[in-house]
């Protein structure tokens, strides 16, 4: 039975606490708010752009921030969706309806207009690795439009599982420099050309987020990107889920211990950000990754 109200539980937390639907929703929202306040993710007057797909993580982030902005009125939000063009996967119909019903301004951009090809066509025609090209183009567009829409911060739906996976992936690939850009609020240096990314769901697990979205009856489909099934991330995700099942708390331990060393990593990899000589976007190389890819698809 639920620890607090003696009704049927919907989840048993890592601590062993069992919670019913209502107590779980309260727990989830309280934990997200605690994270926002502990890491000062939102400041007075902030214009927050929420990066949304149509999945559980981003819709949950959007709804939590929407609720908070209505209650506290010290910041405002809008949403940005990127349609990569993945047949049978990306469908923004429910997201559009959700934003309309909740009076949230939604901006939609797509790969076809920005780069001339859908992701499906890029992969078919140029044999790119799907997640590499998608990641580079998505990050570029999110930052470009955050600046264009004068957003102070970009909120994403990254949860505890995503962060633990990224940390382990970077260890496995000997890529600590990339880890220096992780954390509840990202970025090594503050630079006007980059909107800092904030992660309100940082300490909430993927399972907790899915449960919250299901209980709130958000209009989402629990489907996986067809390109993600055999990726390195998918292997790490399965490995960590296996560990978590046998040793509950593993993902929290990974993230908590990482946060202890994050300030050291930020110090070590503090770099000067230059300008891409092709597109004038910020980059640490002479030519940014987006322009490198653009040259290959010309």
């Amino acid at each position: 039975m639920c620890k607090f109200c003696e009704t049927k539980p919907v989840i048993e937390l890592i601590s062993g606490r069992r919670l019913c639907k209502f107590c779980f929703i309260k727990y989830f929202e309280k934990k997200a708010l605690k994270n926002i306040s502990k890491y000062n993710l939102i400041e007075k007057g902030d214009n927050i752009l929420v990066g949304v797909s149509s999945g559980k993580d981003s819709i949950t982030t959007l709804s939590i921030l929407h609720k908070l902005s209505k209650e506290r009125k010290y910041f405002k939000i809008s949403a940005l969706a990127i349609d990569e063009g993945i047949k049978g996967y990306r469908n923004l119909k429910n997201l559009k309806r959700y934003c309309k019903e909740n009076k949230i301004r939604l901006h939609i951009i797509n790969f076809k207009d920005e780069f001339g090809y859908t992701l499906d066509n890029l992969i078919k025609k140029f044999k790119f690795m799907p997640c590499s090209v998608c990641g580079v183009f998505r990050r570029y567009l999110l930052n470009k439009y955050a600046r264009k829409l004068k957003a102070d911060k970009l909120a994403t739906g990254h949860n505890l599982d995503d962060e633990a996976q990224s940390i382990i992936m970077n260890y496995f690939r000997d890529n600590l420099e990339t880890s220096a850009r992780l954390g509840p609020i990202t970025g090594i240096v503050r630079d006007k050309r980059f909107a800092p990314r904030i992660k309100p769901l940082y300490f909430l697990t993927e399972k907790e987020t899915a449960l919250y979205a299901l209980l709130k009856k958000y209009p989402i489909k629990f489907n996986e990107c067809p390109y993600s099934l055999s990726t390195f991330r998918a292997h790490v995700r399965n490995l960590l889920n296996e560990f978590e099942n046998n040793h509950p708390g593993t993902k929290y331990s990974i993230v908590n211990s990482f946060l202890e060393i994050l300030p050291l990593l930020k110090d070590k990899y503090r770099e000067k950000i230059g300008v891409c000589k092709e597109c004038k976007e910020p980059t640490s190389s002479e030519i940014c990754k987006v322009c490198e890819l653009r040259m290959r698809i010309k």
Partner: peptide, 25 residues
């Protein structure tokens, strides 16, 4: 129709849906 915890007892007439919590890329 109801989300349950792992110790929920089952009987032969139950209708069960298993949702995957994994999404995205």
């Amino acid at each position: 129709g109801e989300i349950v915890t792992e110790d929920k007892k089952l009987n032969s007439k139950d209708k069960i849906i298993i949702h995957s919590v994994v999404s995205g890329g």
